[in-house]
Simulated assay, not measured.
Amino acid sequence: MIAPKSLVLAVLVATTAAHPAAAQSAPAAGDPARGAKVYESNCTGCHAPDANGVGPAHRGVFGRKAGSAPGFAYSPGLKKAKFAWDAARLDKWLTSPQAFIPGAKMGFRLADAQRRADVIAYLKKESGK
């Protein structure tokens, strides 16, 4: 027997009320100030806002075509990418660069969703978006 929609809805509401985290599938909005701190402590070993290093320069990355920072030697996968960096793509990239673009040179992952959202907000701000 299939439960009536009202019963299913009641169970869903009760479950969500009992477990508020279940209602949140996405992190809270990113905070660029927190993102600057996360960037400083996790990203600056390889990246800088205005200069290529082990990784490409990041100022302007938000909205920039992937694999197109001047003077940086990208992996073939990033060179062939046909998209511009946005919040969703940066989130996938920071979650697992290798899964998002096989053969990517970047091995670092930022596992925490809130910290990713904060770094993305920082990169967006630094890109003037």
Rank of each mutant, 00 (worst) to 15 (best):
R115M: 09
V61R: 10
V8Y: 00
E126W: 09
D50A: 14
L78C: 01
T15N: 10
P49Q: 10
A18Y: 00
S6F: 08
Q24H: 15
A26R: 10
F83L: 14
M106T: 10
K92G: 04
K105H: 11
P102T: 12
D112C: 01
K82H: 12
Q114V: 09
Q114M: 05
S127K: 05
S41N: 10
Y39H: 02
C46Q: 05
Q98G: 07
G55L: 11
A33Y: 04
P97G: 11
D91R: 04
A22Q: 07
N52M: 05
A87F: 05
V38E: 01
A17V: 14
A84W: 00
P102W: 01
A3T: 02
A81V: 05
A21F: 07
D91E: 11
D31E: 10
L123I: 00
A84E: 11
K5N: 07
W93F: 14
L12M: 13
D31G: 04
A104C: 08
A36E: 15
C43E: 11
N52E: 12
E40S: 15
D118C: 00
I101F: 15
A57P: 09
F108H: 08
E40A: 15
P76D: 11
K125Y: 00
K124H: 06
S41L: 03
P49A: 12
K80L: 14
K92Y: 04
A66S: 07
I2W: 03
P76R: 06
P56H: 05
A28H: 07
W93L: 10
C43S: 06
S6E: 15
R59V: 09
E40M: 12
D50E: 15
L110D: 06
K65R: 10
S25E: 13
F83Y: 14
G107N: 13
I2D: 08
S75R: 04
A23R: 09
S6I: 13
V119W: 05
S96E: 08
A3Q: 14
Y122D: 14
A18S: 05
F72G: 08
D86F: 06
H47E: 12
F100Q: 15
G45A: 06
P97Y: 09
A26W: 06
A113T: 04
F83P: 02
S68N: 07
K37G: 02
G63R: 00
G103M: 03
W85C: 07
A23V: 13
F108N: 02
V38M: 01
R59K: 12
L110S: 08
L12Q: 13
R115K: 14
K124S: 09
G30V: 05
K125Q: 13
K65E: 10
L7N: 01
A3L: 14
G103Q: 08
N52R: 06
F108W: 03
D86N: 15
G77V: 15
A99G: 03
A26N: 09
A28V: 11
N42K: 14
G45H: 04
K37F: 08
N42I: 01
A36D: 12
D112Y: 03
A88V: 07
D112V: 00
L123R: 03
L110Q: 14
